[in-house]
Design a protein around this nucleic acid. Sequence first.
DNA 1: TTAAAACCTTGACATAGAGCAATATTTAAT
DNA 2: ATTAAATATTGCTCTATGTCAAGGTTTTAA
Lengths: 189, 189
Amino acid sequence: MHPLLRQYFKQHTNADDLALEKIAPYFVEETFKKNTFLLREGEVCKYNYFVVTGCMRLFSTNKDGVENTRYFAFEGKFGTSFTSLITGQPAFENIQTLEKTTVLRIYTEDFYHLVETEPAVNKVYRNILESAYITTQKRIYDFQGADSLERVKWLLEHQPKILSRLSNKVVASYLGITPYTLSRLKSSL
Amino acid sequence: MHPLLRQYFKQHTNADDLALEKIAPYFVEETFKKNTFLLREGEVCKYNYFVVTGCMRLFSTNKDGVENTRYFAFEGKFGTSFTSLITGQPAFENIQTLEKTTVLRIYTEDFYHLVETEPAVNKVYRNILESAYITTQKRIYDFQGADSLERVKWLLEHQPKILSRLSNKVVASYLGITPYTLSRLKSSL
DNA sequence: TTAAAACCTTGACATAGAGCAATATTTAAT
DNA sequence: ATTAAATATTGCTCTATGTCAAGGTTTTAA
């Protein structure tokens, strides 16, 4: 099992090595170059991904073609379209690498099989759902009523990595503002 | 076990009657009058609630005193501050009844104990987290870039009960617009 | 039943930030 | 290394929606 994934399990469960060895073979390593789409909206999501190096994002496009980024998965994080994974319905969002990215991928069916049969995976899944929920709630709460400047400051404080590592275009689509506004705000700071 | 809660378990799990009888005693019925606070921000959330009749909302207040409603729990739904329940930290949101409301409440500790020991409750918890996550994601996605009118139409289509049953003030705080704007839009429809 | 409080409606005004355009800069590909 | 494409910057304009105010209506509580 990849050391980063092992570390993840050790941190979130009390799985023993035996359990980890049972789980490991389901995860397959794969490397993608920058800007590769791992999932396009309208497709059913086949995999859950664990990022080993690099970064990917979840985003959707509204009817006017404006992008909305909802989540960034950096090294050591799981990322996938959980809504599609859970419901089995086509995703309304895309998954795209933002850098050259290495992931461990596991088939949806295998993943849910392990959720049912391996307590460690059940626990990890619970953790993923819980923290995904909390993260989303906090972001809604913190952005609520906040103007553009406050959002940029929030990002600077809570996830500075995003600002320093990713393009303005992508960051703006995460903050729900235009790249024009973001550009102006950054130069005014 | 209250028939509505029984129905919920039957629908989401394959729990047998024996399991349900084990679970039932942990849920205590209680009735609150309109506008009662079941939780105030800053308090640690002690209960998970299942609404039998009536309705409650989860909302927070930003630094300017503007309310943001995140979730409505009508009859047959669970509702609580999951972020507080999960982390054990003080909630940053309030829970308030919007009508005379009867709930079944279960202590946080008892609930998580059952999550670990009763597969039916583990399954139900997973369902709650999954659907809470999906609901939130969909709302972010659908509201993203939508102007006020589109938001009102969205609500009319997806959750008309909210518009017909609750006050403009509360609805507006859910849509992220002012009551003034909502009032104007409703009269223009 | 009545008074007080909360809520809704509608007008007038102010403004944050979107949209567009033109140029500069960075990044990627051959 | 050179060119093409993508991204960033910045000035200008315009509009949706917030804010404030004043009056009407509904709800609540004694």
